[in-house]
Write a protein that binds this DNA or RNA. Structure first.
Lengths: 241, 241
DNA sequence: ACAAAAGTGTTGCTAATACACCCATGT
DNA sequence: ACATGGGTGTATTAGCAACACTTTTGT
């Protein structure tokens, strides 16, 4: 196998995680110490990226990055955009970083996002940290914009594809599903109406199981059936233009 | 300006055009004569592509390709996917082509599509030709799949963004709008219900003008107002999961 | 006057919204 | 027994689907 990398193409992964209190992004610490160890010149956060491997597909490169960070081997991966050339290196900090890492200034990045419940990822180093999408830290490069683009993309996809279920564990309650929509779309929904709607979807199948242990009334669990979903071909008919 | 090109990155443009009789794609003839001029070894069609310029953004590269073919300088450009490495060179023909053009075998392509009324493009050479999406010719590389991906993408975008209007001239009739939906989505719509729905959209503004000359009853013209559209923020509220 | 496309209304049904209380459990 | 989140029903309104005929023009 060829482990060389392309020097002008990188793959970036935005890792979204849904917690019970909202939507999170997993970021990587970026530090550069030049003169003294305790006085970093650069000290901020970035989305995780890597140069693409010559002999891997882009998807494989993205999966590799994702897996090395989260220890997960299920990939809810969506490629949403490719950013080209120039325009992303605007600050001295970013230039310094790029040069100190032997990277080319001119480069291109294929951006993916991954979607899952926040708690299913296992972080092993404190180099990575979850941040609420509502209070992002100081970010390198144009990564703030990229995260924003990814968020906008997932909002649109949710309207049209069953991405929401990737944010949830295999078994989930209807309230968890509602909260997922509310967190990702940043809206509020009426609980009664939401349930009525959800219960009509035949691909949200009720399980003979409840979720206990919240010190409350136990709640019914449901699972998403992709098979059933795929068979429900209608969908198309409605034009919202 | 730096006119060098990246040898491992290309930009591909799928050019969609809407005719009165359906959706078309503009393709480029690919021929390679090896031994005799009248017996080409390769003789098929491809979507138009080019290696990306080092000093241009990807969007500029795409625009350049588009303009050189269609003579249009309005760009309804949508980047929909990036295809990476391997997997696209499966046939001897494609390998032969790549080698005879001094290209690298390992490469990556950023794919865009452009959307407009078919008749607004002016073709100057017979190297380019429109093909109905329903009867595509023999295509090189994996371009059949790429066209398909683009078509699927535009179908989804149409549901959620006002892309349909890019297929039409500035002034259009409601029946043209209906036919546009029918052609792109490959569905049939009820004329009365469609009009009722369209007339409710305040961003479809009636003009004090009619379209004559079909030897029929003249029809009222409308225009799409992007300003008004952008101000109508609701949209979000409806979840179709 | 006729051909050809433009344009128009009503009804039944389904889905969306708005809204407030009881239920089952753990402590 | 009480606190907590889970779960339910109804009335009103809005939008979708199905359906066939009249209007305006050019020739």
């Amino acid at each position: 196998m060829d482990f060389r990398k392309l020097d002008n193409v990188s793959v970036n992964c935005i890792i979204f995680g849904l917690g019970s209190d909202g939507l999170y992004v997993l970021l990587q610490k970026r530090t550069l110490n030049m003169f003294r160890d305790d006085f970093p010149i650069i000290d901020d956060w970035i989305i995780t990226g890597e140069r693409a491997f010559i002999s891997k597909t882009l998807e494989e490169s993205a999966n590799t990055i994702f897996k090395s960070i989260t220890n997960l081997s299920e990939f809810n991966r969506i490629q949403f955009r490719t950013y080209g050339n120039s325009s992303s290196l605007k600050t001295d900090k970013d230039l310094l970083w790029v040069k100190s890492h032997g990277l080319k200034v001119q480069s291109m990045t294929i951006a993916y996002y991954f979607v899952q419940p926040k708690k299913s990822a296992t972080l092993t180093t404190d180099q990575f940290k979850w941040f609420s999408i509502k209070s992002l830290p100081d970010l390198g490069f144009d990564h703030y914009d990229i995260i924003n683009d990814a968020h906008e993309d997932v909002k649109k996809k949710i309207m049209v594809e069953p991405v929401i279920f990737d944010f949830l564990p295999y078994k989930f309650t209807l309230n968890e599903l509602q909260i997922a929509f509310e967190a990702v779309l940043n809206i509020e929904l009426d609980n009664r109406n939401f349930r009525k709607k959800a219960l009509k979807k035949i691909y949200i199948v009720p399980l003979n199981e409840t979720k206990k242990g919240n010190a409350k009334k136990p709640s019914k669990l449901y699972a998403f059936s992709r098979d059933v979903y795929d068979k429900v071909t209608e969908k198309e008919s409605m034009i919202n233009f």
